[in-house]
Design a protein around this nucleic acid. Structure first.
Lengths: 226, 226, 226, 226
DNA sequence: AATGAATGAGTCTTCATTCAT
DNA sequence: TATGAATGAAGACTCATTCAT
């Protein structure tokens, strides 16, 4: 019933409703706990996307998540931790995606072809879901507001840059390790700027995307020996 | 830079004290008022650059500006208005710079050569003054924190995009009006992403700058008929 | 010591687990209940000694005692009651010790000799176990924090004072009943101040102890006819 | 005392009302500020004495002091600071008193005579004002609750012990520096225990006082060569 | 106009206690 | 009886804004 508030939007609450009445078997407490955590994160995400960081208070998160403020603090030690989790989850999803590419067979791929594939996969959601775009922009803002979290951001960024550098090297980019790393970092941060640009009214996602690709590929190619 | 503006502040208030008691005849109230406004803006800018948005309180601004909090509210209706002015001023300076180029003799310039010149002029300060960089980043953050202010941002952005589109067209870029406008917007926003990237540790300003230029030029050239 | 009590706690619950499944037949519920109560008290004592009153929360007590917070509230109506029991137990142990002396053959003892013996026995633990000292100090603090508990303290104190008065009288102190009672009270409270003094850095337990004895004996002797 | 200071608060506002209309001369802002600080301290002191440390909240202090919570925080950075000030003030008054004795002509005084004089002066107020007694006991409790404040307490205690040691030495006590210091510390802490004892019902301040003196003098004399 | 003391709603967080399972 | 998730009142503290002087 709590979760119903969170959202009707959330599949989880619906399914758990059903499972309660149909399957009878109580969900293991761990997953119930996970559910709450997910509710909280979903509520925070929703508030972030719809009202922005400034309206993100622990009390509102709790209310939207359908639990009391006290309960919220049973799942997260403080507000920062919630945002951290959100950010961390997002970074991890990106990292995992890139790791798949890194581990995949890159035979026959050019730096441009592989970057193109990856960018298509990562950028695509924004065309479909502008809310996701707003969410990530706010998340980024939040990150800047909590200096402690920047360290994590930097660590992740470096990991991602390392992965990208590796992929670029494997597919034929020739440059010093440092330049490769910088190139990885630049590619990664390009995505951040894409998100920022989308926040502006009047911009055309499609064009921006194409131009970002074109610009990046031009750079990459200048580091590729023919 | 900041401090000069600051001490400027105190000097001003001292001299105005004197002028009250000695002869000189009170400066026209309008200019005295302008002075105060400038003091406030300078203080806000300084705090933004040195301590960040989260430490920017109206009381601190007033103290640093050398006037009372009560007076501050005589010149600005609320905190938002101060930030708005700051942002607006900055945008205007950019706009004016671009308008000069727009009005100048573009004979013999290529789209790339003119963009290169402008970017060098706009990006340069950051290499020289990291504080300016921090300031603009914080300003940008602030902008996002006050959704009401985004409208202004968009209006300015569109004006700038229009100017850039005009310059690009005059120097030989061939595209529909809409694409030209988008290209102007993209160029302008590229600068924002440059600032954002600089906030990350480990990035090399020089490389980023070069790559941004390379990317942009590659795009521009594809719209230039030979 | 604490930890022993602690693991004792868990051991107990383990063994009770077994006894449920094996034969032995469930211990009478009353004694199982007593066991739990003891676990709770031991946990509270441990927390008090190791982390102080301010970190003493019912949830932590329950966790350390190896039972749920809900169960804890089945044995104690509220937090105060736990502290009350702890304090009460401690007072009772002192009372019992003194009653033994009261009941013993005091033939040949002087007021000073018997007080000396008793003080040695009561004060000694602190030299050996500073944790005990900390525990009692925290307990005392707790007592002050719950005004309701002070009444109990006073009742106990009066009982102890009565015993001491009796012992003093039996061993030859000559004074009105009231003065004897006050003397008993004073002797008892002297111990409290001993504990308090130990909390200060730089104090020498040995010297304090000797001085307290010397002072007290000087008083007692002035009430003893030769 | 408490009530006088408190009602002093109301009196002051009344009198300032008058002074506004009669004397016209506005009280210097510094003293107005001091007045507020005194109001706050008086309110805190009153709450401490009447309801105890546990009921001492910043909001209640503010309300009792007749100002808003926001104002309170304009005069004190946090709750601890208020208590610190209270404690510090009290310690300072003791220290100053002792310093006077230290600086005075001790010719002809014996250790016992001077201690007697000082104790009479320090202990006396409690006979007159039981509220003062409660206040100091609560203050002491508070001190234990804020570990950070204990450092200050210890420093003060050492200063006082040093003064007392000096006085004792000057008046003829013969012992090593360390023992003298310990003796000073013991004497000082004796007072703390006196306060603690007074909190117990049924104790007779007069008797306790006499006994404490008798005990202390007996100790001191054992360190005095005849 | 200037001042700056005063305001108080709003923020995060804790923890004793309850109650559905 | 046992569990432990849930509760929410309460506390410390902040800061944009107002208003008496």
């Amino acid at each position: 019933m709590e979760s119903s508030q969170l959202s009707e939007g959330s599949q989880l609450s619906e399914s758990s409703q059903k499972s309660r009445k149909v399957v009878v078997r109580k969900a293991p407490s761990q997953s119930r706990s996970k559910e709450k955590v997910q509710n909280i994160l979903a509520a925070a995400k929703s508030l972030l996307a719809s009202e922005g960081l400034e309206k993100l208070t622990t009390n509102r998160i709790a209310k939207l998540a359908g639990l009391s403020i006290g309960s919220l603090y049973q799942y997260f030690p403080n507000k920062q931790a919630i945002i951290h989790q959100l950010y961390s989850d997002w970074l991890q999803s990106v990292r995992e995606l890139l790791r798949e590419y890194q581990a995949s067979d890159l035979e026959g791929e050019t730096p441009v072809s592989i970057m193109q594939t990856m960018m298509d996969q990562i950028y695509r959601p924004h065309d479909l879901d502008p809310e996701e775009s707003r969410y990530e922009a706010e998340l980024n803002k939040a990150m800047h507001l909590y200096p402690e979290l920047q360290a994590i951001d930097h660590r992740h960024a470096r990991q991602i840059a390392g992965i990208l550098a590796d992929i670029l090297r494997k597919t034929g980019v020739v440059a010093t390790d440092d330049v490769l790393f910088q190139l990885g970092l630049y590619s990664y941060e390009l995505y951040g700027s894409y998100e920022a640009m989308l926040q502006h009214e009047g911009t055309s996602p499609g064009l921006i995307y194409e131009w970002q690709k074109q610009g990046l590929f031009s750079i990459i190619e200048s580091y590729t020996k023919k």
